[in-house]
Design a protein around this nucleic acid. Structure first.
Lengths: 214, 214
DNA sequence: TTGACAACCTTACGGCGTAAGCGTACCTTA
DNA sequence: TAAGGTACGCTTACGCCGTAAGGTTGTCAA
């Protein structure tokens, strides 16, 4: 039980506060001191619940893995299962943009990580993919999904209006665009017609799914 | 001219030293003080040649863009031009693994960045792709390439022998793998047969290229 | 000769991750 | 009830980090 009435600090509370700070946009400035302040404690007290900052990040990444919709091994429509898996990953990675580069780079994979990858391989194997083919399929899908999330993360605007404004600023900052006529075309076209990431994502995803067969 | 005979420090020398440190594996611990020491100067002296650390990173990223093989607008075989572009990107991103997450996230794109993207769009437009289709094509290709590089970067081994060793360690660290039979299959299979990134990359690339037509 | 300027310097500030060790409230066992 | 152990919070301190402020010095143009 907790001393002095305050409800007890746990690893879950620490990770929850860190997740909130990271999602709030302050991932690159996320620090042990700020997490500690968010849970009303001094920095060093966190070390009773996480081994170090790396361990804290491992915990965050596994929470994100837990939010992903794992495909069901043995699903009737394996292609649709993979489609829904992909859209789930894009949604989740957009909620937690800081996580994009970290998902597959943890040395110590957490339980949700294992669960998710096991389900993906299971779905492919049960759909009739051979072992090598299943690895190929998950590799190309994940590369595309993470790569798309990476590109989507790096654009500093969300609405089409912001989009246009940013492009104008960028164009103004570059002294002479005449050597790059094809880029000028992209920028003017996008400034007027906007850009829809969801459509773009679906295009590439369907292209890849169409090329996959057991 | 330089005082005291020592050849003058330039932005290029600063970026060169920083690139060497980053490629040497110390990107996450790259600091202004270390770059300064590498060029025989105090940290604050760097600020005569770069605005700040962000500007230094912008410079590094543009150097990497400069190493990429840009496709030629109007190439006879546009598909092969894109294929060579993709392999060039994988090669370069493997030489500069720290750059993977940074390439498309710079607020201020450098001249080599502009040159490369202009060439890519030009190659697609001249191959007969409509404007929207060209954007689709470059989006799916780049997402795949960057995503693949991201996954390749995060694996902490290079040779098949190291690969096996790492897998054994990982498997030993996880208490009970029985809930994840499909993962066990992957790990044992890979430990014996190894894993070839080049083949894996080519598989996905050809799948995507096969699905692209003007 | 003078004065401006560029390039390198020292100093200092606030923030970082975390090692070391202290204090106190609680639980177990005698 | 008393004694000892343990869990969990705390303070302090170290060596890093990026960079603001401003000093020094060697080289030029006027």
């Amino acid at each position: 039980m907790s001393p002095r009435g305050r409800e007890p600090l746990t690893r879950e509370r620490v990770l929850g506060a860190a997740l909130e700070l990271a999602d709030g946009g302050g991932f690159e400035s996320l620090s042990m001191r700020k997490v500690a302040a968010a849970v009303g404690v001094e920095a060093m007290s966190l070390y009773n619940h996480v081994a170090n900052k790396e361990d804290l990040l491992d915990g965050l990444v596994d929470i994100v893995f837990g939010e992903l919709e794992a495909p069901e091994p043995g699903a009737a429509d394996w292609k649709d299962a993979l489609r829904r898996r992909a859209h789930s990953m894009r949604d989740v990675l957009n909620r937690h943009r800081w996580a994009v580069g970290l998902m597959e780079s943890r040395v110590a994979p957490g339980p949700e990580n294992l669960r998710f990858h096991n389900a993906t391989m299971g779905c492919l194997r049960e759909a009739g993919f051979g072992f090598r083919e299943a690895v190929h399929a998950s590799s190309v899908l994940d590369a595309y999904i993470y790569g798309f999330a990476l590109q989507e993360r790096s654009l500093p605007f969300d609405t089409p209006e912001e989009h246009g404004a940013v492009i104008e600023v960028k164009q103004a900052a570059i002294p002479d665009m005449t050597p790059f006529p094809y880029l000028v075309e992209v920028m003017t076209e996008m400034a007027t017609a906007g850009y829809d990431y969801a459509t773009e994502f679906a295009f590439g995803l369907e292209l890849i799914l169409a090329g996959l067969e057991p």
